[in-house]
């Protein structure tokens, strides 16, 4: 009994480290293979369509409404200072530095990351991955690299769209609905927002893209145990990706800004 408890206490960090090591290994492998021929461009484009184009709607909606609610909330607070002119700046800064990249990544995790895990998980349990292997084709190269590269490329694109729409949403609420001085609203944005705010946000998004795709693919790739295993892998992929995104967001923010 005592030994059992002791073992499980030691087992937990061990499993964690193992998982961390496996994911890092997967990341390195993907990185290496990304620069090796053959470049499966059509695979990458297919994934870019899946991740980028099909996620557009959800990103558009979240971006716009985030900006809107941000304007609503911050104007409530700023009115107490009599500083409503700052609402635009707050929306712009929050969107570009933080909410744009993070919310976009979380939405893509939910939409595309989950289906990466489910798809690869299904391919694993139906031996499609083995089929690739016996054809002397590297499944990581064919299945994971395109997804990771596509995420890496599309996340910044989705994020900048979300950034802009968030600001537009904030503008609609702030200026059109709450009647904040339009000149102040826009001028404060232009004055406060710096290019590094935007670019660093996009760098974040690209990193999140790698994180969510590597983790989701890893979880799917090593699925065990039939349909149930696929379901478990999908859940784990989403949870682990989201948590890792939020943690690494803190790390990245403290490094970059």
């Amino acid at each position: 009994m005592f030994r059992k408890i002791l073992r499980s206490i030691f087992q937990l960090p061990l499993t964690f480290l193992q998982e961390l090591g496996n994911i890092s290994r997967m990341f390195l492998q993907v990185t290496y293979l990304s620069f090796r021929r053959p470049f499966k461009l059509d695979y990458i484009f297919k994934q870019m369509e899946f991740i980028g184009v099909r996620s557009m709607l959800v990103v558009v909606i979240t971006g716009t409404f985030t900006g809107m609610v941000l304007a609503l909330q911050s104007s409530y607070g700023f009115r107490k200072f009599g500083a409503e002119g700052l609402v635009g700046a707050i929306v712009a800064l929050s969107m570009t530095r933080e909410l744009g990249p993070v919310l976009t990544s979380l939405m893509v995790t939910g939409r595309a990351g989950s289906s990466m895990a489910a798809e690869l998980g299904t391919m694993r349990v139906t031996e499609q991955i083995d089929a690739l292997t016996v054809m002397a084709l590297n499944p990581v190269k064919y299945l994971i690299v395109p997804r990771v590269v596509a995420s890496f490329l599309m996340l910044p694109v989705l994020t900048i769209i979300s950034d802009l729409l968030g600001i537009v949403g904030g503008y609609i609420i702030g200026v059109k609905l709450l009647g904040i001085n339009e000149g102040a609203f826009i001028n404060k944005i232009e004055k406060t927002l710096d290019l590094p705010d935007i670019y660093n946000g996009l760098v974040k998004a690209a990193v999140f893209g790698i994180i969510l795709s590597v983790i989701s693919c890893y979880k799917g790739y090593y699925t065990r145990g039939g349909a149930e295993g696929v379901g478990r892998a999908t859940t784990e992929a989403v949870v682990l990706s989201s948590v890792t995104i939020l943690i690494s967001d803190y790390v990245l923010t403290s490094i970059m800004f």
């Binding site: 484009f45 870019m48 369509e49 980028g52 184009v53 557009m56 570009t96 599309m154 910044p156 694109v157 989705l158 900048i160 769209i161 950034d163 802009l164 927002l193 290019l195 935007i198 996009l202």
Partner: peptide, 18 residues
């Protein structure tokens, strides 16, 4: 084509904001 459209929108957004 679809990817192109999205990427174009993204680049235009970035360009406009910059």
């Amino acid at each position: 084509v679809w990817v192109g459209v999205v990427v174009l929108i993204g680049i235009l957004s970035l360009f406009y904001m910059s």
